[in-house]
Design a protein around this nucleic acid. Structure first.
Length: 273
DNA sequence: AAATGAACCTGTTTGC
DNA sequence: TGCAAACAGGTTCATT
């Protein structure tokens, strides 16, 4: 489901609502997500207060005053939202969090590709989910020099490189497709054949696309909703994603779809070379 | 060392 | 209409 802008939007909304609030109780309805939920999840956070909400890659990080960080990943179909504590349980509501002020958060995830675990805040980035991650796409470290540098040494297609979290995190399928279109580069072009100019455009367009989407509150392609269960508004801006067989917005050629590394790539055969 | 493919799941859409 | 196949926004791990 969610790509980086969705998690960033969620993070901002949550930060404004849950900092300095205390957890009354965590209830686990089902513990077999992508990885089993920690057995001591509830007792670890009972009575603890949240003092920061952060994001790294597509992971949502809740820092508590017990020196632990609760890590949440929404996988493909996850949602994390406020609801009435008495609202009817969906069969995919796996974790319920009651706050001391009476508010209630839920983790709902039909496909169960999501994750929830915790670790010591101080050692967070040492664990296997974080220790190999590359640069954040919206930070200055993700520059055209950086992209051009790794592209030269790569044997993979440019889209695979953009989606490889060891190089740059958070560029998922929608945004990779869109940034490639806006840069006039075909997804299957070998990264090593990218020119300096194209690297400049790609970096610019990755940043621009992500930033715009964050402003719009994330993309709702299918079923993303924010912490208040409201959809994102970015889908109106999609140029190629999900548009196979429809005319290119620039030249009217029909948008093509190919499968790369098991995922759909959409491109305009005329505008992208 | 780096890159690909399989695996993890359920729900929805598409095609016969 | 019904059923099966294809497809879905992610990530790790094993295997090239």
């Amino acid at each position: 489901m969610p790509e980086l802008p969705e998690i960033e939007s969620l993070k901002r909304k949550l930060a404004s609502k849950i900092i300095k609030t205390r957890v009354a109780r965590i209830t686990t309805k089902r513990d077999d997500l992508r990885y089993p939920l920690p057995i001591d999840l509830a007792e670890t956070f009972r009575g603890c207060s949240i003092f920061a909400v952060r994001r790294r890659s597509k992971y949502l990080l809740l820092d508590f005053d017990n020196a632990k960080t609760l890590v949440i990943h929404l996988g493909m179909s996850g949602r994390f939202f406020f609801t009435d504590p008495s609202s009817v349980l969906d069969k995919h509501d796996h974790v319920l969090i009651d706050l001391e002020d009476g508010r209630h958060l839920r983790l709902r995830d039909p496909r169960r590709f999501g994750m929830m675990f915790f670790c010591d805040t101080a050692k967070l980035f040492e664990n296997r989910f974080f220790n190999h991650l590359g640069v954040e796409p919206l930070e200055p470290e993700f520059s055209s020099d950086y992209l051009f540098g790794i592209a030269k040494k790569s044997s993979a297609p440019i889209k695979s490189l953009l989606m490889n979290a060891a190089h740059v995190v958070g560029v998922g399928n929608i945004y990779a497709n869109e940034a490639l279109y806006l840069s006039g580069v075909r997804p299957m072009r070998l990264a090593s054949k990218i020119t300096k100019i194209e690297a400049v455009r790609l970096v610019e367009n990755v940043k621009k696309t992500l930033a715009k989407s964050i402003l719009a509150g994330g993309t709702t392609f299918r079923d993303y909703v924010d912490s208040d269960q409201k959809p994102g508004l970015y889908q109106v801006h999609l140029h190629v994603y999900g548009r196979e067989g429809e005319p290119c917005l620039g030249c009217q050629s029909l948008i093509k779809r190919v499968i790369q590394v098991g995922r759909s790539s959409f491109y305009c055969p005329k505008c992208q070379r």
